[in-house]
Write a protein that binds this DNA or RNA. Structure first.
Lengths: 262, 262
DNA sequence: CCGTATTTGTGCGTATGTATC
DNA sequence: AGATACATACGCACAAATACG
């Protein structure tokens, strides 16, 4: 079955010595973006142009594009074009979410760790939050909690509001990475949440968010920390309810502990 | 987007369009891993087998594999085979590292945020660290600092030791996600570090690590927090040296602030 | 509203390099 | 060293989606 034959021909690649030798196609496309000072949203050359400029086949360019789009370095729109991506953390979301699905036990572990880290970041930034939250953003957060309560009364659930709430909380700190991480972790959490048994007390959850806002308004970072810890408590209970987790109250310092044992 | 006009079966695919239609090839391969209960390290079918089982072409399987390997969901070994991946956070490393390179100014912001989050996680887990660090791991960490000092004396640098140090610090908490995040952030940091001007005082950095260990040995979580903050201080100075950053000392509580203004 | 151009998506045959036995 | 199995790579033809005249 091996039709070995016709030596030359199929590829008239005279030499095609890859100028930027050693570098993979992925790296060379990255290099292209850097060299041309492209920013997120800027249009990329077409696959054909790239395959010509880089002197590789379009299949190769396409595979590189697949890798890059998985990392959100480029964004591909079918039948339209390719653009520089937003560099979000969607890749981590995919990876973590799939990791959780692989094994139920691992899922529990990952989720518990996830909650701990989320709480850790938020409590750790409590001082900055009370310091920098403006009345305007506080007002919009109040708005969100009102929407939560309304939906809770209708037994509806308020995932979108919850996500936006935590995102706003991080945004006031000015730390873009914290915002991205929070969004990513929230997404992972939401994906794995459906697989969890039981239900959350909607009204109680909404109240927990109000308590956070009250603490911010009172400019009491200690109170804010305990409010955040209390906010996560029911979620912990809903899952394996593992060890550790120095509950709330401690007030004074740290208190962002937990990190169940393995 | 209505109007779903009959796929039309362009190729000679008699019918194909089998069971899991609607799902992308990537999702169907994920599904395959889940359904067959494959664990990290387990071998995957060859691309030919997959393209047959999923009734799609090799190119499609190949591109899907590129996506999956970018997320570390599968791992391909040239000329050998494909295996289920370790689900690490390498994808996030790639994404964040590239983000840092995109723009010089933005680079500073990203790196500053990165340092803040790293410090946040470590100080936030200070209580758990002093509580759970065993004499054994403390000894291996001492070993690392000795190696640091030796290399510093030879003016050598000790990236590997530094990384391992911070990884051990997180490992004792039992939070696997924190370990992965720390490793990922460290990698991003190391990648972007080369682009920074100036040099670090090696001996001083090694001393900072010793101070961290001393605080752990003294079982003083407040001291540990300030030691961690001091450890990151020179790195902050080396970059833009932005605002915020409530330095150390505060001792009592929180103190993990910073998060420069934007 | 319809056609057409552009661009990405898909399929397939085949050639080449590489690792394992 | 040879054989085999596999991933890697190239090129082309066509399908599907989007934009624009």
């Amino acid at each position: 079955m091996p039709a070995k034959k016709l030596p030359a021909e199929h590829g008239l690649r005279t030499d095609a010595a890859p100028r930027s030798s050693g570098l993979s196609v992925v790296d060379r496309i990255k290099e292209y973006i850097l060299l041309n000072r492209l920013a997120p949203g800027d249009p990329m050359p077409t696959e054909n142009e790239l395959s010509e400029q880089l002197a590789v086949s379009r299949s190769r360019v396409r595979e590189a594009m697949k890798t890059l789009s998985a990392l959100d370095i480029v964004e591909v729109r079918h039948g339209y074009g390719t653009y520089v991506g937003r560099l979000s953390l969607t890749a981590m979301v995919e990876s973590l979410a799939f990791r959780g699905m692989l094994d139920a036990q691992d899922d529990q572990d990952v989720m518990a760790d996830l909650i701990d880290v989320r709480q850790l970041v938020e409590t750790g930034l409590a001082d900055v939050i009370v310091e920098r939250t403006t009345p305007e953003v506080l007002a919009s957060m109040r708005q969100l909690t009102r929407a939560m309560h309304e939906k809770a009364a209708r037994g509806e659930g308020f995932l979108a509001e919850d996500r936006e709430f935590h995102l706003l909380l991080m945004r006031v700190t000015g730390n873009a990475l914290a915002v991205q991480l929070t969004g990513a972790f929230w997404d992972v959490h939401a994906i794995a949440l459906g697989a969890l048994p039981g239900t959350t007390d909607l009204a109680q959850t909404a109240d927990a968010h109000v308590a956070v806002l009250d603490a911010i308004e009172a400019a009491d970072s200690g109170l804010l920390r305990t409010a955040i810890v209390r906010h996560y408590a029911p979620i912990r209970d809903r899952m394996g309810s593992r060890t550790g987790t120095g509950s709330g109250a401690g007030a004074n310092h740290g208190d962002a502990r937990s990190t169940h044992g393995k």
